[in-house]
Design a protein around this nucleic acid. Sequence first.
DNA 1: CGCCTTAGGTTATAATGTTGCAATTCTACG
DNA 2: CGTAGAATTGCAACATTATAACCTAAGGCG
Lengths: 171, 171
Amino acid sequence: MSQNVYEPHNHSACVRHAIQEAQALCEEKGARLTRVRLRVLELIWQSHKPVGAYELLPLLAQEGFNSAPPTVYRALDFLLELGLIHRLSTINAYVGCNRPHGSHPVCFFICNCCGRAQELENDKLRAMTRQVEALLGVTVEQQMTELSGVCPACREHTTPETSGEHCCHDH
Amino acid sequence: MSQNVYEPHNHSACVRHAIQEAQALCEEKGARLTRVRLRVLELIWQSHKPVGAYELLPLLAQEGFNSAPPTVYRALDFLLELGLIHRLSTINAYVGCNRPHGSHPVCFFICNCCGRAQELENDKLRAMTRQVEALLGVTVEQQMTELSGVCPACREHTTPETSGEHCCHDH
DNA sequence: CGCCTTAGGTTATAATGTTGCAATTCTACG
DNA sequence: CGTAGAATTGCAACATTATAACCTAAGGCG
């Protein structure tokens, strides 16, 4: 884990780092990080809260980009393919990847309260994959684990009287 | 793992067992396993290949049931709530649960070729959850792991010349 | 029965994701 | 340069998945 999104941190450094990594990766792979693609990546990185494809449309429109679904989905597909973002299928939303180097088993914790998602590197996950492969005789090509619950920040801010309400951070 | 869906097995015994378990569970919880709900459960259990909500509509219609989306989704919600089925969010499909006793961490392997899904009990999964909770200080409430790749049956039936094609089992 | 709760019928609509094709832009190569 | 081919984008329509709202029917229970 390179950082903990539930703790205060210098978020603009997060974004800057992500963009630099993306540019380097594209350079390396000869992929074109066009204006729309870059902007979509930036928008996704604006917070650690995964963002839906249709939330991006009006944001792009504001900036004069074409704003029909295919535009966004094509950008998302490009970024997914390079591993610059991940898709969280339990919530149909997209979030930046903080270690975009090749395909890797993906594990996220998603806070049901603030919505922020933390990507995790987990050795148990790899062990599990190997165990499944051995047990079933299968070949695993893709894998995604999505945990959800309450993050420390939300548990702290959720006093008994506000229990059940949303505490809407958006960092 | 109570069985391996990729190996030949007595599938009608699978179904019979699932239905009996469902009836017992509903009895125990005072839940009403109505005709639509029972039929949806049976249809889902007809194969180990997860089925989409909209695939169920025409099947129900054939049998004289009302066949509008809410009918199916209400039945699915009921079955999900009792843990009689699981939703595989990476493929938007529903599949029977072979151990419907309370909420449990869910882990599936889905074959990209034949589509059949195998539910797995995995101790590494529980270890991972505990590790994540300790590492982030979070409380995990739900979790889903979806692996995908090629099952042994499909690898075997996929000779070099048919490579890349589908091998469409539907057991 | 008569009341209440739960389940189901019906219509419409929301949310998410694709297809197909034309127009444009970029890149490589002569 | 300049042009051919590939990649990207614009655009319109459509497909798939899921939910809302409101009403009717059925079952449980005094």
